[in-house]
């Protein structure tokens, strides 16, 4: 029956670029997730896939951390472990000082109030048989809010995301993709969370709609002091919304740092290649810019290359890269870290 308290607004004033500022809201330490290999028809067990391999980072209150990488790099798996949709194989997740890595569903419930998720496909992430009002009130009543209060708040939530009370009685199929994503965001906001894990929240939307949702998420963050973990493959979108960026490759973070540094002076050769591969919507820029085209494909995470996993595609690879796995270390004295034997000096 207790109303859900407002998120702590203290988050708004901190300096996102300073690693020493305040205690982290969420910490991931040495996270590992392996999926058992499927048995083949001949009965041989396929090798286990190490989807996430020793991933550590902190997320501070009110901060947006971008998790970028190509398909299969483990970014979604990481996001799902943070909200405990997947059980980590190893490592730990701490939310607001509490270790939530292996706690039971009952103990998890108060944490779930503060950590919510938004998915890529808005239509399939909403229950098609529930009207919007039920989609929005369920998370609140589960958390013990009075149903009448929850209904009143549902209307408020819709206004907060740019819809109106007239949409409360509608079903998901009656919305366009952009509107459905607004409903999904409203649902995530229902319990007044402090952190939202957004997994590719705009990549299923048309260009003209993407901008609407990006602006909405930015505004909500400002107004509510939210922290986001923003998982995306689109580097241009990530640059727009994130304070810090973590670049993943084959289950590991290869570079982590403040956005402007990572984008302006990428330290890891993979980050450089990734950035140079993104087409810029300007023909004059496209004709003149330097482009690094990587050789080959992403190796299978079931059989990652030895040493640095990027070495077969890396233009700078030396002997040591084939044998020794580089640790994520500070580069150029700054807050930035890269896992490379030969990082570009910042």
């Amino acid at each position: 029956m207790t109303p859900i308290p407002e998120a702590a607004p203290a988050a708004l004033t901190k300096d996102a670029g300073d690693p020493a500022a305040g205690a982290p809201l969420l910490s991931a330490r040495n996270l590992v997730k392996t999926f058992p290999g499927r048995r083949t028809r001949t009965g041989r067990a396929a090798p286990a896939v190490r989807a996430v391999d020793d991933v550590s980072f902190d997320l501070r209150p009110g901060e947006t951390l971008g998790l970028v990488g190509e398909s299969g790099c483990g970014k979604s798996t990481t996001g799902r472990m943070l909200v405990r949709l997947l059980e980590p194989t190893g490592g730990s997740v701490t939310f607001d000082g509490t270790d939530i890595t292996h706690i039971g569903q009952r103990a998890l419930r108060p944490v779930r109030r503060h950590v919510q998720m938004v998915f890529q496909d808005p239509v399939s992430s909403l229950n098609p048989r529930h009207r919007v009002i039920r989609t929005l009130t369920d998370p609140m009543t589960v958390q013990g809010t009075d149903p009448r209060e929850a209904r009143a708040r549902a209307a408020e939530l819709l206004e907060q995301v740019g819809l109106g009370a007239e949409h409360l009685r509608r079903y998901p199929h009656q919305f366009s993709g952009g509107q459905a994503q607004r409903v999904a965001i409203a649902r995530a906001l229902a319990t007044r969370p402090r952190l939202i894990v957004a997994d590719e929240p705009v990549s299923a939307l048309d260009v003209s709609i993407q901008a609407q949702i990006v602006n909405l998420m930015e505004r909500l963050r400002r107004e509510l002091g939210l922290a986001y973990l923003f998982i995306a493959h689109d580097l241009s979108v990530v640059k727009r919304v994130c304070d810090r960026v973590a670049v993943m490759y084959l289950g590991r973070i290869v570079e982590l740092g403040p956005r402007d540094e990572v984008y302006a002076r990428p330290a890891h050769p993979y980050t450089r290649a990734l950035l140079s591969a993104v087409p810029v919507p300007d023909p004059a820029v496209e004709r003149t810019r330097e482009r690094i085209v990587l050789k080959g494909d992403l190796p299978s995470p079931a059989a990652p290359p030895g040493g640095c996993t990027f070495h077969p595609r890396c233009p700078k690879a030396q002997d040591v890269c084939r044998t020794e796995r580089p640790a994520l270390l500070t580069v150029g004295g700054g807050p930035r870290e890269a896992a490379c034997h030969f990082p570009e000096a910042g």
Partner: peptide, 11 residues
Amino acid sequence: LDSLPRLDDDP
């Protein structure tokens, strides 16, 4: 064109 986030614009 204006609604596109770009690598080279001001966030």
